[in-house]
Design a binder for these strands. Structure first.
Length: 423
RNA sequence: GUGCCUGUAGCUCAAUGGUGGAGCGCCUCACUGUGGAUGAGGAGGUCGUGGGUUCGACCCCCAUCAGGCACCCCA
């Protein structure tokens, strides 16, 4: 065999088995999104690099995006995220849209990263946003959608948790510790790293980073305070609504959650696995100035994004992926010998016309081989039409899972099929 | 972008510097209209790639590519 040209680094091949899992996840996403009345949309995969330069940090475009120039000397990028596209689409039609706007999308994205477990260069991302209202009920709805999805896809509250915080609350708390505004982004990162370091290590790290000893101690105390949210009217309201939505056991206050993005202004949240891995599954928050960043008038919004790679890993670890996904054929119609090909084909067509998914074995191989074929493909029912059956106007059906085999008159075929498929 | 680890049959992995193996899978056959079992055969490898050291390299050295882990980053 000649050498096979390899696939592009960081991309994935979706063989039918993988595709069935992806389909299942995507269907669940659609189900939850539309359940709350969100409309599906999609943007282009290619955008001018300027769109990201307007909003995102330097690093994103310079180091983590696929950027290339066209023969016409345009600088384009394969989209690394959807939010700027969303902002652009909203800005372009700003006064033709009906608010509050509820939109969702799922599509491919690219980031030039070093691939490793849970991180690829090409991935799919679910985006869902509620734009045009500052009401805290909107934040609650978005958080609920995240929690509901995790619940419906099969996670228990013990396995995953949506951690919620509020930037305004933390901002105030930082001010009370006399942390200057310029230092706040750094402090965000410091808090983010608390989980990964020992207390002593962190203390050194924090004071090296410009905090006084008292400020570092104050921060440590701050993030241990599980009741801090009582100081935020927004969070109090949010948790009240979450209760009513019925997903309170999936949602929890966590002062350590900040999110990396600068544009979040209020509610921020991130869903994690609760086990040892504690990978980040999805994240989002409220942004009040996104549309303005691409040239529109200011418009508040709240939303989140979820990548397909980590969610699938987490689902696998949680053993939450069901068996038998995919749309395997339900019936295999065998071919007894060369003289009876058309008779079998007629039968296959008849069954297919009744709405069943039917595979027709294309040649008169040994029956054993045809049965083995059905077995390997997971086709549950095999139909045999041999000389005996044809002579008596009947047909033989075998259910491979139960090993039950019956011979029925041809007019009873569909009845019997229905019975088999129920068992 | 940085560091560490790993690349041997389709898959999972063996093999003191001295002619590369196993299990599973795959194909064929038997059980003579019927799958998972059993038995008997069979195919399949320039040992990731390219250099180097050596009388001789899967084994040692260098580079490169790919994968994994930890950083960095996380839109």
């Amino acid at each position: 065999m000649a050498e096979i040209i390899r696939s592009v680094k960081g991309t994935r091949d979706f063989y039918p088995e993988n595709m069935a899992v992806r389909r299942w996840i995507f269907d669940k996403i659609r189900e939850i999104s539309t359940l709350f009345g969100y409309e599906e949309y999609e943007g282009p995969c290619l955008e001018f690099i300027d769109l990201y330069a307007a909003k995102s940090g330097e690093e994103l475009v310079k180091e983590q995006a696929f950027v290339f120039s066209t023969p016409g000397d345009d600088l384009l990028t394969l989209r690394p995220e959807l939010t700027p596209t969303l902002a652009r689409m909203v800005a372009q039609q700003q006064y033709n849209l009906v608010y509050p706007l509820r939109w969702w999308s799922i599509g491919p994205f690219w980031r030039y990263e070093k691939p490793q477990r849970g991180r690829t260069r090409e991935f799919y991302q679910w985006n869902i946003d509620l734009i045009g209202t500052k009401a805290i009920a909107a934040d609650a709805e978005i958080v609920t959608i995240a929690a509901m999805f995790l619940k419906e896809i099969g996670f228990s509250p013990e396995q995953v948790r949506v951690y919620v915080n509020n930037r305004r609350l933390m901002d105030r708390a930082f001010s009370e510790l006399s942390i200057q505004n310029e230092l706040k982004p750094t402090v965000f990162r410091m808090v983010d790293r608390m989980e990964k370091m020992r207390v002593n290590e962190w203390h050194v790290y924090a004071t090296d980073g410009g905090l006084s000893k008292e400020q570092a101690d104050g921060l440590l105390k701050l993030v241990e305070n599980d009741l801090l949210w009582h100081d935020s009217p927004e969070l109090v309201e949010l948790f009240k609504l979450i209760e009513i939505y019925g997903v309170a056991d999936y949602v929890e206050f966590n002062p350590k959650v900040f999110r990396g993005l600068d544009y979040y202004t209020g509610t921020v949240f991130e869903a994690f696995e609760t086990g040892g891995k504690s990978r980040s599954i999805l994240g989002g928050g409220r942004y009040d100035n996104l549309v303005a960043a691409v040239g529109g008038d200011p418009l508040p919004g709240v939303g989140f994004a979820m990548g397909d790679v980590v969610i699938e890993l987490a689902l696998r670890d949680a053993e939450a992926i069901p068996e038998g996904l995919g749309d395997q054929a339900q019936v295999l119609v065998t071919v007894f010998d060369d003289e009876r090909v058309s008779e079998s084909l007629r039968l296959a067509t008849e069954i297919r016309n009744a709405g069943y998914r039917v595979v027709f074995y294309p040649e008169a191989d040994k029956l054993g081989k045809q049965f083995r074929f059905a077995d390997k493909l997971g086709i549950p029912i095999v139909v045999v039409l041999g000389p005996d059956e044809i002579e008596t106007g009947s047909v033989a059906l075998k259910h491979l899972k139960t090993r039950e085999q019956v011979t029925v008159k041809r007019e009873m075929l569909l009845d019997q099929l229905g019975k088999f498929l129920l068992s």
